[in-house]
Design a binder for these strands. Sequence first.
DNA 1: TCTGGGGTCCTAGGACCC
DNA 2: TCTGGGGTCCTAGGACCC
Length: 415
Amino acid sequence: MAGFLKTIFHVDMDAFFVSVEELFDPSLKAKPVVVGGQRHERGVVSAASYEARKFGVHSAMPLRTAAKVCPQAIFVNGHPDRYREYSEKVHSVLTSFSPLVEMASVDEAYIDMTGTERLHGPPLRAANQLHRKMKAETQLNCSIGIGSSRLIAKVSSAKAKPNGILWVLPGEEARFLAPLDVRDIPGVGKVTEQNLQALGIRKVGDLCRFDDTFLEERFGKWGLALAGKARGEDAGGWFDTEVGADSDPKSVSHEHTYNEDTAAQNQLESTLMRLSEMVGRRLREGGLHARTIQIKLRYKDFTTITRAHTLKAPTQLDTEIFEQARALFRKNWREGAQVRLLGVHASSFGEEAEQGDMLEGDRRKRWKHALSAADRLRDKFGESSVSLAAGMKGGFRERTHENPVGLPGKGRQQK
DNA sequence: TCTGGGGTCCTAGGACCC
DNA sequence: TCTGGGGTCCTAGGACCC
């Protein structure tokens, strides 16, 4: 569809987590607020109110640092359920403007508005309506960037913040981008910024002075994409896909950072069990079967390793995930070393395996039954109501090592 | 200042096969 | 006998995003 002029909106909610928290507790309004955890906790800032940002607080900043630079800040725990609820409201507002909506995360979305002029008028008019309707139906502010590509829409919404609308006219893309820092291009982070700076490239306009092949030699595939981005094109990668074309998930993972580092093997292994259960549950919910199981191990000094194993047949069973995770852990953990973080990751999704072995198939079948029963209990009574993990809080039925889930007996039929 | 959790994509090396 | 080249799969690590 090259040569076809598109109109893309990027809608980005302003200080989303903070704004949602304010709806639940209006006393937070107009105050320095930090969402993500308490001031003394191990963790980082998920979102900061504009008042807190004045003190230098920003997302990804360690909570303890935020407490230092802004002692008067109010620290609030995050509420993912609330954000999901409001994200759905946002989504439904957007779909009333175009069927081609793609949520890029809980708080931002792309909309392909190409060809909606007869319905909504020219882009600015449509954006104004959308902005008003968003406020009316969600009580939340957003910023809207309008451009001929996802990239331009994304960059212009950032420049429109807070609570603004910015339209980059077709043909003006390169001129809009030229004076911006290379860091403003999505995908250019700290490292790429440094690498570019070493070549004397600081502004997007500086990039245009180098030709595509030079950038490709220097930075590989990514260099070529970068050359296109400097002109405002959705060159390569995810940006190059049609808005609204939903793609299949590639991986599912859960990880946990301890409030205090630990070297207790039983504690570490019950964490692995809990993480394996969470991963298994998500696989079952998504109808996914994973062949590759990976663990992540972060030590006290922050050195981090990942170790993976690929199975012959894909699985979605907690027990099989845990078995692999524990084997990887035992093989790779430096015994006695203090652990900061553990993670379990599943990928290489494929079709459910044919069971050749009848006996083995029967055991798996019973586990599957048991697990879906456990899933239903968790739906009803909450995440902590059922656990395979030995020695962990929250189980409401007896568990043993022989019968860890407390559900299917080895010789009993489950109907 | 002391670094979360959930993802995606890319690179590079080695194994293995033809 | 001393050595190729391509393709695919697997593993590990890292940059980046929200």
